[in-house]
Design a protein around this nucleic acid. Structure first.
Length: 476
DNA sequence: TGAAATGTTGGGGCG
DNA sequence: ACGCCCCAACATTTC
């Protein structure tokens, strides 16, 4: 059989590393010569592992940007990764294959198969950790076991040299697999309904956008981050999570930008806190690595027979749609639905509400976030849901139950955030904004609010559900 | 990276 | 002036 591409080339297998800078797989492949850059969208994966709807949207745009960066040489495929790579090996004169490590169980399964195929065909493969500061296997307790307490993990991690970012982005000599006719649209990533247009307008996708965002964040929002990050109406969080998930930027690059920023005004407290948030991301993937069913199984097995419901569709639906009758919750859930994102503080509050007040299994929340978030990430999502539910690693104690009213009053005191996403309440005075059912009839009327019609009454009683949750906890 | 219940303290109204 | 009560405003404990 005639080889379609005559010169020896290396495959770079892109997955969640959709960038060319600080990409060791690319850099090593470039040193070896010509590159066949590939991305394989696996549409046969089990449902649990399939890319969420909003993530698909991001992925589509990110692949488009990457393709542009690669001078339109990105080769797209749909199907099973090992089969497709096996075919490529047969068809072309492939010398080596490079990729950056992913930690999702299905990615690991894929990697094993690909390694096997390469070994059989006598093709060298090389894998890099590039998407994280530390490799999960490098941070262990003295007895060889892994950390289950965040602070201990963080302290240990800080004693180990973090991955440094690559200084130079190589010149690339990419080749196109001309026999392959798969186009981006063949991946079917853009949903058929119109809600995605608002999301597309809100986000700049891709490697360049990620770097712009880092610069902007450092310049404008790093100073005061520790305090400001808790207020959803302030744009003080970095918004880097989707870029990090898709590997459009690496944490090493972010740290590099911070340390080399010329006029850094942020205090050490702010920088430390931001670093600590990045380390939470490291900790999540670390836990997934050491407990690879984190997305399915309660880390703390005591919770295996806990009485979470999985079939109350009425309550679940109200939560998903942002119609719980608790304005702060509803604002968060609608922000998620409309923008593909939810502020971190509000994520904790809505998650606590689902699991503790509504008594619904954290898997239901995990699934919804997975489908709706632009930054949906298996490790972060499962670790965080387990953390809130109380069954996770170093988890919030079960009795720590957020009160949506109090949280709203504390962190959205002037109601700016809540009014944006729950506009039917925007004319209510601050005093009643988070508890419209306590407002006198005439106040409601003046604000144009009709409970049960223009805005729902609370779907559950807070005190009652809280006490029920506490009772269940005692049973553990 | 809570909230509610309970306990303590101290200032002011008042008999 | 004094003791008593009330009740914020904190502080501590409990879930």
């Amino acid at each position: 059989m005639q080889k379609e591409i005559s010169k020896e080339i290396s495959i770079v297998w892109f997955r969640q590393d959709l960038r060319i800078s600080d990409n060791p797989a690319i850099t090593s492949a470039a040193e070896a010569g010509k590159i066949l850059p590939i991305y394989i969208f696996d549409d046969c994966a089990p449902k649990l592992y399939q890319t969420g709807s909003v993530s698909k949207l991001w992925l589509s745009h990110s692949l488009e940007k990457l393709n542009t960066t690669l001078d339109k040489k990105l080769n797209l495929y749909v199907g099973n990764a090992s089969k497709i790579i096996a075919e490529l090996i047969k068809k072309h004169k492939i010398k080596k294959i490079f990729w950056n490590k992913c930690y999702e169980p299905w990615h690991i399964d894929q990697e094993l198969l690909v390694k096997k195929i390469c070994d059989q065909a006598d093709i060298k493969w090389k894998i890099f950790n590039s998407n994280y500061l530390w490799s999960p296997k490098d941070i262990l307790k003295d007895d060889g076991s892994y950390y289950k307490v965040f602070t201990a993990y963080k302290n240990k991690a800080k004693t180990i040299k973090a991955r440094a970012c690559l200084a130079k982005t190589p010149k690339l000599d990419c080749v196109k697999d001309t026999a392959n006719k798969t186009k981006l649209t063949d991946l079917n990533l853009i949903p058929d309904h119109p809600w995605h247009q608002k999301i597309e307008k809100l986000w700049e996708v891709g490697e360049d956008a990620a770097h712009d965002k880092v610069e902007f964040f450092i310049e404008n929002h790093l100073s005061g981050y520790k305090h400001g990050r808790d207020y959803p109406a302030k744009a003080q969080t970095s918004l880097l999570s989707p870029h990090l998930h898709f590997g459009e930027i690496t944490p090493a690059q972010i740290l590099d930008s911070i340390s080399s920023f010329a006029e850094l005004t942020a205090s050490n407290i702010d920088i430390e806190h931001f670093l600590s948030e990045l380390i939470w991301r490291e900790f999540s993937v670390y836990l997934l690595h050491h407990f690879n069913t984190l997305h399915k199984d309660n880390f703390n097995q005591k919770f295996n027979n806990f009485g979470w419901t999985t079939n109350n569709t009425t309550l679940l639906k109200a939560w998903k749609k942002g119609k719980t009758g608790y304005p702060f919750i509803d604002a968060g859930m609608r922000q998620l639905w409309q923008t593909g994102y939810m502020h971190n503080r509000v994520r904790m509050v809505v998650a606590s509400f689902l699991v503790k007040n509504l008594g619904i299994h954290w898997h239901k929340g995990e699934d919804w976030f997975w489908d709706c978030l632009v930054d949906a990430d298996l490790a972060n999502n499962s670790a965080s849901w387990q953390w809130v539910a109380g069954c996770g690693v170093d988890a919030a104690p079960y009795f720590r139950i957020f009160n949506p009213t109090t949280q709203g009053e504390k962190f959205d005191a002037d109601g700016e955030y809540t009014r944006e996403f729950v506009p039917e309440l925007k004319n209510l005075p601050d005093k009643y904004l988070f508890e419209p059912w306590t407002a006198p009839e005439q106040v409601l009327k003046a604000a144009g609010v009709e409970l049960g019609k223009t805005y729902p009454r609370p779907i559950v009683d807070l005190a009652e559900t809280r006490n029920r949750a506490l009772e269940s906890y005692k049973g553990l």
